[in-house]
């Protein structure tokens, strides 16, 4: 007799956990995020060696090293281009990208729109903590206006980036948000994002325990988070999603903001189609110079 209804996974969460011990500050939100990722990967069940996990620079970008997947802890802001190169070159791989808000919306901000429109089948997880933690507490692109930090002694003068609204406006087909305060919910949206065919984006409100605001910690998330599903949000309605996304920074919504019910073909699918059509009438590589002969 069984009392469960889930299919038994071949891989367990612990199979995705590496032996490397995280250097994150005790209490960091990212501990919960990596746990959620282990669980999402276990639910999907791809062997670790078929996963490529790319990151940039920042506290959160250490995350690939804490998994048993192939990891690439690259340079600041460039995780997305590298990940897309991997996915285009080897479409059979499961490709994950992770980084912080600085990586994704400041130094690498220019890459996000293009990752969206290129629509390779990758999942981008941003650990958004509204601060530069690794360099010890400077303003980040998602820091609220007026925030006092070591680089904004008298308060920041700039509006915060709204990652959810940006990515929705870029035309992303899957946009979700989570928090380590609800690890189960977070694991669920990450799993859904990975399963989604095409570029998917998960913004994780992952507080910085050392430099973050006291009223923005995981404890506060537990008290204030609101599940989009419970609010009755229709995740196939992009405009409604954008309406809710406007509340970024004021309210903490968790779950799927938008999921295209009819996803367009991924870039990988289009490439495959093109390769098949064109390779049929191709001369062998060894005859590649023949076209230059004057006939």
């Amino acid at each position: 007799m069984t009392t469960t209804n889930a299919p038994l996974p071949t891989y367990q969460a612990k199979d995705y956990k590496s032996e490397l011990k995280p250097i994150w500050c005790p209490g960091c939100g990212d501990f919960g995020v990596v746990q959620a990722i282990y669980r999402a990967l276990a639910a999907i069940g791809r062997p670790p060696h078929e996963i490529a996990f790319v990151s940039g620079i920042g506290c959160s970008s250490r995350i690939p090293g804490y998994t048993t997947a192939y990891g690439f802890n690259s340079v600041h802001g460039r995780a997305l281009p590298i990940a897309q190169g991997i996915k285009v070159a080897s479409p059979e791989l499961l490709v994950l990208v992770a980084g912080g808000d600085g990586d994704g919306f400041s130094i690498g901000g220019g890459h996000v729109a293009h990752a969206v429109r290129r629509n390779t089948d990758i999942t981008y997880i941003v650990m958004d903590n509204q601060i530069y933690g690794l360099t010890k507490g400077q303003l980040s692109p998602t820091s609220p206006k007026g925030l006092h930090t070591v680089t904004s002694e008298y308060g920041s003068l700039e509006e915060a980036v709204n990652p959810l609204l940006y990515v929705l406006a870029y035309g992303a087909n899957f946009v979700a948000q989570g928090t380590p305060a609800d690890m189960a919910g977070l694991a669920e949206v990450i799993e859904a994002a990975i399963r989604f065919p095409g570029f998917s984006f998960v913004n994780v409100q992952s507080p910085c325990v050392t430099f973050g605001e006291d009223d923005q910690q995981v404890k506060n998330h537990r008290a204030t988070m609101q599940s989009l599903a419970k609010l009755g949000h229709d995740p196939t309605d992009r405009l409604a999603a954008m309406g809710l996304a406007q509340k970024y920074g004021k309210e903490l919504h968790t779950g799927v903001f938008y999921k295209n019910p009819d996803p367009p073909p991924t870039m990988n699918a289009l490439i495959k189609e093109r390769q098949q059509v064109l390779s049929e009438k191709a001369p062998p590589r060894s005859r590649i110079f023949d076209r230059f002969l004057q006939t």
């Binding site: 009392t3 469960t4 276990a42």
Partner: peptide, 15 residues
């Protein structure tokens, strides 16, 4: 019953 099915029942929270 698998580990993936439970979430911090007796484990102290990370934060």
């Amino acid at each position: 019953v698998k580990r993936e099915m439970i979430f911090d029942i007796e484990a102290p929270e990370y934060d």
